[in-house]
């Protein structure tokens, strides 16, 4: 019996508590990201944004959530019931499971696996399923068009994200996310790999279906795309999933290019602040860029989106992979590790 407690029960309880400790702040962050988005866009457009519910509009996300919770879940009669219900769940779950490998500080990570960056890449490439399933199961033209757009778009931009990740890996010599952060102690990777940082950020916008690449939703042409038949909590799951994906993508950007939990300078006033706070600040900064882009850019036309992905980013990132590898070998900076 003692064995059962020591080897099975306690580890399980501890892991569940760790998961709760990650997921609860994440969901609060998602709630406030929706508010931040409306406030930031309001400020950019010289409006106030939501300011009625609670002081400074701070209770607005909860009011929205409550409203969605009390509405009726409508399943269209022509819909494929099972897939229709699974699709939003898949989107939401996939946006959460990626956080298992994100390091918040040295050693502060739920699963410190050797192939962490591949795991993240795999999870982000699965995000397309929720959308495609939703679009097909709705049995509606608009939803289907949104799903087709999304499938093509996410597969295209995944390719350049893959090459950007390879460039970073060449400089690190490990697939472990903590190792990737530690390799940036001298210099954050966005300085030597600036073009790749830009490619990654823009591909991240496309991968999370954010403006200016929000063609799968494209409310001016296909109403709300794949979400058109969804209401109430199933819609809320899509919504939460999209924003959690944005935060995950920002966290990935921070880990790969902005030095994760590391302070900008390893000197007195900066390294007093603990790592997780630096990490959160960097994520917030990248998220602000996401919102800024949404308020500034018009939506891309679909053929131009494909052109940008295949004819600009793919060759550029391929050249940078070769160039980085060449420079690392020629100068002898290539990392030698046994991991």
């Amino acid at each position: 019996m003692a064995d059962f407690w020591n080897f099975y029960a306690w580890p399980t309880i501890i892991i569940v508590l760790q998961i709760v400790a990650i997921v609860v702040p994440l969901l609060v962050a998602v709630a406030y990201l929706t508010l931040a988005e409306r406030k930031v866009i309001g400020a950019i457009q010289l409006r106030k944004g939501p300011n009625v519910v609670g002081w400074f509009g701070l209770l607005q996300p909860f009011a929205d959530g409550l409203k969605l919770f009390l509405k009726e879940t409508v399943v269209p009669s022509g819909a494929n019931r099972g897939v229709f219900i699974i699709a939003p769940m898949a989107t939401f779950v996939l946006s959460l499971v990626g956080w298992a490998v994100i390091p918040f500080d040295a050693g502060m990570v739920l699963a410190d696996i050797n192939v962490g960056v591949l795991y993240l890449f795999a999870i982000s490439s699965l995000g397309v399923y929720g959308i495609v399933m939703a679009g097909w199961a709705s049995n509606s033209r608009y939803a289907f068009l949104g799903a087709l757009r999304s499938a093509a778009q996410m597969v295209s931009y995944e390719v350049s994200i893959g090459f950007v990740i390879i460039t970073v890996l060449l400089c690190v010599g490990s697939l472990n996310l903590s190792q990737i952060v530690l390799a940036q102690q001298g210099m954050w990777f966005f300085i030597p790999l600036l073009p790749m940082f830009v490619v990654f950020f823009i591909s991240g916008l496309a991968e999370t279906n954010r403006s200016p690449f929000d063609l799968p939703e494209g409310e001016s042409e296909i109403v709300a795309g794949y979400m058109v038949e969804y209401s109430s909590m199933v819609f809320a799951l899509f919504f939460l999933g999209e924003y959690a994906n944005m935060i995950l993508m920002s966290a990935m950007t921070c880990v790969l290019f902005l030095g994760g939990w590391l302070p900008p300078f390893d000197i007195a006033p900066f390294n007093w602040i603990p790592g997780p706070i630096w990490f959160a600040l960097k994520i917030a900064a990248v998220l602000f860029l996401f919102l800024w882009v949404r308020a500034t850019m018009p939506r891309y036309r679909y053929d131009q989106l494909m052109r940008l992905g295949w004819k600009v980013f793919l060759p550029l990132s391929l050249i940078w992979v070769v160039l980085t590898a060449g420079v690392l070998v020629a100068t002898g900076w290539a990392p030698v590790t046994n991991r």
Partner: peptide, 11 residues
């Protein structure tokens, strides 16, 4: 997962 689920099966 990346190759088969993320790319081949999507297509």
């Amino acid at each position: 997962v990346v190759v088969y689920v993320g790319a081949v099966a999507v297509l």
